[in-house]
Computed example of a mutant assay.
Amino acid sequence: MRRRTRESMRMGENDLRALRFLLKRQAEGEPVTPAELGALLKLKSSSVTVMLDRLTVAGWVTRRPHPSDRRSLVIIATPGADEEVRHTLEAMHRRMLEAAGDLGEREAVVVREFLGRMSIAIGALDRSDGAP
């Protein structure tokens, strides 16, 4: 889904991660600084600047003065960015729900059990060093 959203919006993985983070924080009423984005994405300041320049030109974000720190900026996702992400994900979610709704009861049980086992297996990787 992330790949399709990125392709639809013509952006890279870090661009989409940054945008999703901005949208989440905005919904929580929390401002986001370029330094926070850099820490989240493990990017140097110069790389964050290049990414923000690209997202600004594309119309996905704007930069504004920080409300309490005159030396800093906050990054705001534009309403168009929020609408585009929602539109793209809603269409995908709708198709996924339709596919799930087509499953019979026995098929749904098998799929739930399989996904539960996969979740446990992936969770175990998160707790280890990732080696097979």
Rank of each mutant, 00 (worst) to 15 (best):
M1S: 15
D102C: 05
R4N: 12
D69V: 11
F21V: 01
E113G: 05
S45G: 08
E7Y: 02
K42T: 12
D53M: 05
R25K: 15
E30Y: 02
A39V: 05
A27K: 11
A121D: 07
M92V: 10
R3T: 14
F114W: 07
M1P: 10
A77N: 07
W60C: 03
F21N: 07
L125R: 13
P67T: 05
M1D: 11
L40H: 04
P31F: 05
M92S: 10
T5N: 09
L19K: 06
V61G: 03
R54C: 01
P67R: 09
R127A: 13
V48M: 03
R71Y: 06
V74L: 07
S8N: 09
H93N: 10
P132E: 10
P65Q: 05
G104A: 08
G80M: 07
E105W: 03
V50A: 13
D53S: 12
A35V: 11
L52P: 05
H66L: 03
V61I: 13
A81L: 03
A91I: 08
V111P: 04
H87D: 10
P65W: 06
L115N: 02
M9T: 08
Q26I: 01
K42G: 09
R4D: 14
F21D: 04
T56P: 00
E90F: 10
A100T: 04
P65A: 08
T33E: 14
A121S: 11
A58D: 12
M9G: 08
M96I: 10
F114Y: 11
E83Y: 09
A27F: 00
T49G: 09
L73I: 03
I76M: 12
E7F: 02
R2C: 00
Q26Y: 00
M118P: 00
S47I: 00
L40D: 03
R63P: 01
A27R: 13
H87T: 12
E105Q: 08
G38T: 06
M9Y: 06
F114N: 02
L19M: 12
R106I: 05
T5F: 00
I122A: 13
E30D: 04
K44G: 15
L41W: 00
V74M: 11
T49W: 00
V110Q: 08
V85G: 09
S47Y: 06
K44F: 01
R127C: 01
D82F: 06
E84S: 14
H87W: 09
M51N: 05
E90G: 08
S72T: 04
S72W: 01
K24L: 10
E7T: 07
D102Q: 13
G123Y: 04
S47V: 00
R71K: 14
A58R: 13
S68M: 09
L89Y: 05
D129C: 05
L19E: 02
T56R: 14
L41F: 02
S119T: 15
T78V: 07
V110W: 03
G130Y: 06
E83H: 12
R64A: 15
S72M: 12
V57T: 09
S72V: 02
P34C: 04
D15S: 15
T5W: 00
A81H: 05
G38Y: 02
L41C: 07
D129R: 12
L103H: 04
P65E: 06
A99L: 14
L41E: 03
A77H: 07
S45A: 11
G12W: 01
E84L: 14
T56D: 03
R6I: 01
A121N: 04
R2K: 11
A99D: 09
D102T: 01
R54A: 07
